[in-house]
Amino acid sequence: MGAGHGHVLYRESDSPVHRLPPEVKIVAMVVFTIAVVATPRTAFWAFGAYAVLVAVVAALARVGPRWLLSRALIELPFVVFAVALPFLGSGDRVEVLGLRLSEDGLHGAWNILAKGTLGVLASLLLAATTTTRDLIVGLDRLHCPQVFTQIATFMLRYLDVLVGEARRMRVARISRGDDPRFLWQLRGFAAGIGALFLRAFERGERVYLAMLSRGYTGRMPAAWQSEGAATTGQWLVAATVPVVAASIAATAVVLS
């Protein structure tokens, strides 16, 4: 396959998690996240249990904790809001380290931090064990509309085209005596952004026409050849994670 090099997050390996069909992993990940979000925020033990579950899957997928945690920093800007909540929230105030903080706000901050982190870890595990091409095949097998998977396929394909064109234009600028450094290249970039778009489109159009002439009809062969589609056994194996997560959530709801 002429797969691109856009698999920044994919970790080549042959673990049991890697071998699972993509559609199974997508469903498991979505159900797991919904179970986490549905858990009452004061059920602290439940979040510990979810973390253990994530750690077990990561170990099975041979994804190291260091890789996982450093990539999880992506959520940092999203939790800035969480830090502000204890100061903004209303209701009862509690004294923490000499600061009068809103109790509701503290709980809210914990809620965002715990649920956000678990969600990010779950999607990182999916990304580490599934190539982007397989992800689209999985969505297709889950009966995602074809218009949708088609746009997604082209998006992932054209990302490489776009990055490649941007690099070529930058080399062209430098070879004509431009000296791009940090912020100063922004001006050159802004001036060239329309040209970049057109160049990428014309390349992308050629890619598309080449695909059409080779028999492309809107779906990738891997999707309509049912080869490699999930078996009942694989569904059952992958169901363990969401089922455990759902029972933890149910217990937490009942107990609270």
Binding site: T33, I34, V37, E75, F78, S123, L126, A127, A152
Partner: peptide, 13 residues
């Protein structure tokens, strides 16, 4: 959707 599924950018839920 792609950002949420594989980058954890915005929660899936």
């Amino acid at each position: 959707v792609v950002q949420a599924l594989i980058f954890g950018d915005g929660g899936v839920a």
